[in-house]
């Protein structure tokens, strides 16, 4: 822990992370608009938010975990696996597949997909949490391993093939409120709001900060640290289930790799947002701004006609820059 960074001298130089992010978002928006004025159209803005909704929901779970000093790098594989399972249920029970059972099951297919999705997310959260807590091994390593396990199961279940839904389950990902605001955005904003309430107003959120800041002190202060951490993994798993439902509904098909990119993008978003990798810092606003910046960059690069593969290079560079700058200015410990 670098105590020096918190001296009076250091504080003067410190830039508020949220302010820095807003500046960066505005800069990216201005550059993109200059290159292509279509960027600033309201339809494009809505489009961007729709694109980042799934990432945003995953990032809320990842962010709360990171506040407690824990990482879940298996979230991408979780989203993929849940996606495969729910698409499989809709296909088989919903009468798409040739071996579909009786007609009476068809109206229940989607409710069943919902229940199973959340159940699977819940179970994966529990498993990740228990192993991280009991093994005392760095959460990054454990969840890296589980990510591989979940991905493998998704491949085994799907046999590598994609599950097409043929428009059976569109309303969640594709419908718009009042024919205008896409439903996924509403879920994204609700997730951010929920995260805000948890972190700011619930003692549970306070415990997350305390554990991330100093797990031993939190334990001596009477916090059941193991339970709090386990719950954070479960919340993350449930949010992954919601994300998978929206994603599959929007895309209309599921592959064993559909959610893969979300693991790093979600972690990148919250880190760029200003959550210390060691925990104890950050808030819902910072997750939101981090997600917006990452999503904006992807869209801006496409609209500026830049080779899409450049996106990863740019995002990687921004992560390194954000972390380095805030480390040097003493925002993190």
């Amino acid at each position: 822990m670098k105590i020096k960074a918190f001296t009076k001298e250091g504080r003067g130089k410190r830039i508020n992370q949220s302010t820095m992010l807003i500046i960066m978002i505005v800069v990216v928006a201005i550059v993109a608009t200059i290159v292509n004025p279509r960027f600033l159209r309201i339809t494009n803005i809505i489009n961007i938010f729709q694109q980042i909704s799934v990432l945003g929901i995953v990032a809320c779970g990842v962010g709360m975990l990171l506040v407690s000093g824990h990482i879940d790098i298996s979230v991408g594989a979780q989203v993929s696996l849940i996606g495969i399972i729910l698409a499989g249920i809709i296909q088989h029970a919903g009468g798409i597949a040739p071996d579909a059972p009786n007609a009476w099951l068809q109206p229940l297919a989607i409710p069943l997909a919902f229940i199973v999705s959340f159940a699977v997310g819940f179970v994966m959260g529990i498993i990740n949490g228990i192993v991280v807590i009991k093994s005392r091994v760095t959460s990054f390593i454990i969840t890296l391993g589980f990510g591989s396990v979940y991905k493998g199961i998704a491949l085994l279940v799907s046999g590598g093939a994609s599950y097409m839904l043929f428009g059976r389950f569109e309303w969640l990902g594709r419908s718009r409120l009042l024919n205008y605001i896409p439903v996924p955005i509403l879920f994204f904003l609700s997730a951010v709001l929920l995260t805000h309430v948890i972190l700011k107003y619930l003692r549970y959120g306070r415990f997350l900060y305390a554990i991330g800041g100093n797990r031993k002190a939190a334990y001596v202060s009477g916090i059941n640290t193991d339970r709090v951490i386990l719950q954070a993994y479960v919340v993350c798993g449930l949010l992954n289930a919601l994300a998978a439902l929206i994603l599959i509904s929007r895309v209309g098909s599921a592959l064993a790799t559909t959610g893969e990119a979300y693991a790093l993008d979600a972690l990148a978003s919250v880190i760029v947002g200003g959550v210390a990798i060691t925990g104890g810092k950050g808030n819902a606003l910072s997750f939101f701004l981090g997600v917006v910046l990452i999503g904006l960059l992807g869209n801006a690069l496409i609209i500026m006609n830049v080779n899409p593969y450049v996106r990863d290079v740019v995002i990687g560079t921004i992560i390194i820059a954000a972390v380095t700058v805030s480390h040097l200015t003493g925002e993190r410990t």
Binding site: M1, Y209, A210, G213, N214, K216, A217, A218, Y219, V220, A276, G280, K281, T333
Partner: peptide, 9 residues
Amino acid sequence: KDNGLVIIR
């Protein structure tokens, strides 16, 4: 600092 306080809060 070790187990009494969460000093970054």
